[in-house]
Write a protein that binds this DNA or RNA. Structure first.
Lengths: 216, 216
DNA sequence: ACTCCATATGACCAGTTGGTCATATCATGT
DNA sequence: ACATGATATGACCAACTGGTCATATGGAGT
């Protein structure tokens, strides 16, 4: 557990902390790690460059602090969706999770932007560890949904659980990317779709998941 | 159609061209667009910096030329796999395509590396257009497989084709990423798996696609 | 031998980066 | 009023970037 943030930062008035976090979040989400400029962060938050180094050890310290902040927000959402759909059947819960993900991205585009950067920016500090943390959250979430679905007999008992989680994770992740990364989705045109069309697509996908491509 | 490569480059001896393309491919795959250094490319290919600007208009010119080179290689593979599996049934063809993809990445890791960069490096020149070209190839390929599967009665006739292509594209793309990006896959551990285990996983996934999560 | 033009070169430029540090400002206790 | 320690500052630094350009080299035609 190496310290990246200095006590000085935590002593700051809350609104000043918030201004700095917000500026850093914006810059990192926009440019990724290496391309992000400390000068930009400093200018946007209205502090001197020297001050930044009174608050954090170095560039990676700022990044890791902002990442922790972001992941805490995501965690809250996952818990909330899981709890509030406890009574629904498996496929409805999946559907709700997807739509909640869309809402989240629309509400916190910068947090999602940071995730996308970590995904494929080789130079992010401690990238493997950060990536693993995020993917593990998603996998645990889906695994838990799956177990409950199996217990209730909503899924076939011979389902290979790990592969199923893999498939679900792939689909959900891609769906969110398709809906928010321009030109990424040339098939469903999710980025342009209105909420009603989106819901329609989600239901088609749930139906394929339920019955398969060949089945009855 | 704006020119990015100068005739001078095309007049060069083939091995010199190859050396330069190879060096550029390596650097872009490693660092992405903005982070790639022309100095590194120049040093690795043993030419002077000034020469680079006799061959290409500017940095983005080099990148776009290398991208075109890379996509031509991919295209050849897709055509070949499609042709050589013409007689197989839908799910076997899908399986073969996946395994062929794995082989390709192992054989041309740099080309795959460039694709991953384009995916989420906001600063890549003409990113939207390049991304769209790649995704469109994949979608057309899957669509064609699907049509033939439907025609042969291997798939249920009421299948919503667009959504099915979307799901397949998501799964295949993620599978390749999981098998080659460290720490990305916390579920199947594809990166460490031996060829036999990989084949096993692929078949489980094909089975889920065929029969669905709930079905008989 | 001379000309001509394509090709090759690397010192050089302005701009930007992450990071430093001597100095200034502020708040508090006495 | 003074001292003390935390906080704030921005000029400055070395390193590196993409790109330029005056000059050198090479080879073909005469």
């Amino acid at each position: 557990m190496n310290e990246t943030v200095r006590p000085t930062f935590l002593n700051l008035p809350e609104d000043k902390q918030a201004r700095i976090i917000e500026a850093a979040l914006t810059e990192f989400a926009d440019k990724g790690y290496q391309q992000a400029s400390l000068n930009t962060i400093v200018a946007a938050s209205g502090i001197a460059k020297g001050s930044l180094y009174q608050y954090f050890t170095d560039k990676s310290g700022i990044f890791l602090y902002v990442f922790d902040f972001a992941i805490a927000v995501v965690r809250r959402l996952l818990v909330q969706v899981k709890d509030s759909t406890q009574e629904e059947d498996f496929f409805t819960r999946l559907e709700r999770s997807l739509l909640a993900g869309l809402d989240f991205i629309r509400q916190y585009p910068k947090i999602y932007g940071i995730y996308l950067k970590i995904l494929f920016d080789q130079q992010v500090p401690q990238r493997q560890e950060l990536l693993q943390r995020v993917r593990q959250y998603a996998a645990n979430y889906l695994h838990s949904l799956l177990r409950q679905g199996l217990a209730r007999g909503e899924l076939r008992p011979d389902l290979p659980a790990a592969s199923a989680v893999f498939l679900l994770d792939a689909l959900l992740d891609r769906f969110l990317q398709a809906a928010s990364v321009p030109a990424f989705d040339v098939v469903l045109d999710l980025e342009q779709a209105n909420p009603e069309a989106l819901r329609q697509r989600v239901q088609e996908l749930m139906d394929i998941l339920r019955r398969g491509l060949a089945g009855n």
